[in-house]
Design a protein around this nucleic acid. Structure first.
Lengths: 212, 212
DNA sequence: TCGGCGCTTTGACGCACGTCAACGCCACGG
DNA sequence: CCGTGGCGTTGACGTGCGTCAAAGCGCCGA
């Protein structure tokens, strides 16, 4: 079994209750009272935040094996929405039972890795140009599928262009344009949501290219 | 005493060793083995990350009362540099002693709040225009000084324009230009690093204005 | 089968912000 | 006193990407 991005074995083994979530359903919403963190067993999710004035943003995409909802610990309210992008299954871990189950260390590690992931997103949003952002996004997905035993070179996008765009700070048109550009350059093929990566090294090289 | 952004009382009370850090000095560096988290007692700091190709970014500015270094927990190595921007003092908390001192709950809360802060930065970088970013930055500083008992309307910037620019994803020229613009609009006065906020509501209003 | 609708693609155009360059200000040391 | 170097400001210019608009492509229900 390949290394997981976030180790949730301790959480899923401890006999917590499970729940099915259908595509489009919300696991928790911003502002709701925080009571539990969630281990994602199967499926695909996004977490998003809203701004007062209506603008919102996708903050992360999540896959099986990840732990989510920790943003609620500090204020005792969730600060984000967690939405399933396909039919999925989650494991509910009441926060109070983390300590009694001796899972604190694992929780620390999951939160720490999330902090590091956030750093990467900030770098992406703060310093990269559009094509670099998109290449980074595809490579990140690729690695995460690989880590779960799926093909790193061929996968199905669960999210729409608009959600990708929001996540990497671009307009949906720019996302679409650069996907087409990558295809023209022979780096990938795109058919709707089906992606095949033809040249991983070439995609990675897109990210090194400073303006020139 | 006003509410602190991060409650570190439990950590500073527990008799951990303290250390002085001079302006410009590094508390830890990216890649070093992780052994401790740090409670910031006095002073002002930045944390920054580097990319392989030399590009780097300021990820956060920190003030007294905050807890830092948690990014190292997951990989047992720090992933960022922590640099003092003025002569400061920190409290060293060996990670292994967090549990024995019963400080896990507080650590969770500090990390959770950091996750929420990161969400805010991502929103800023992903959705705001230049003047909104700068207004948000100034207002954030203002609130944090207020929370520590300092004037929210008059303060000294510890960082240079370049560091502000890096943090909010702009060029230093754009930062300088919009500071001047805010001054022309009567929202603030700027003299070098000395900032006085004349119209907090006006600054806040800058952030609501969608393109139109 | 045929609309209708949501999503995506593609093009034309404009602007917000980056880049480049020159200059001002201040602190420092000789 | 003046030179030097770091930092900040300001202007001129170019461009990367957003915006607007129109058309293509599935998908689903009648």
């Amino acid at each position: 079994m390949p290394m997981m991005r976030t180790n949730i074995a301790g959480f899923t083994d401890a006999g917590f209750t499970r729940k099915r979530v259908k595509r489009g359903e919300c696991v928790y919403r911003s502002g709701e009272a925080f009571d539990a963190i969630y281990a994602l067993l199967t499926g695909f999710f996004k977490t998003s935040v809203g701004l007062e004035d209506g603008r919102g943003q996708v903050i992360a995409f999540h896959m099986s094996g990840e732990l989510v909802g920790m943003d609620g610990i500090g204020s005792e309210r969730y600060t984000t929405d967690l939405v399933a992008l396909e039919d999925s299954e989650v494991c509910i871990i009441p926060y109070g039972r983390v300590a009694e189950a001796g899972l604190q260390r694992q929780l620390h590690q999951a939160m720490s890795r999330e902090l590091v992931r956030d750093q990467g997103v900030m770098m992406l949003l703060g310093t990269m140009r559009a094509e670099e952002r998109l290449a980074a996004f595809l490579l990140d997905l690729s690695q995460r599928f690989l880590a779960r035993g799926f093909s790193p070179c061929e996968f199905h996008l669960r999210m729409k262009r608009q959600e990708i765009a929001s996540y990497i700070g671009l307009s949906l048109e720019t996302v679409s344009r650069f996907l087409s550009r990558f295809q023209d350059d022979g780096l990938i093929t795109v058919q709707q949501k089906h992606i095949r990566i033809l040249d991983i090294a070439g995609l990675a090289a897109v990210m090194q290219r400073v303006s020139d």
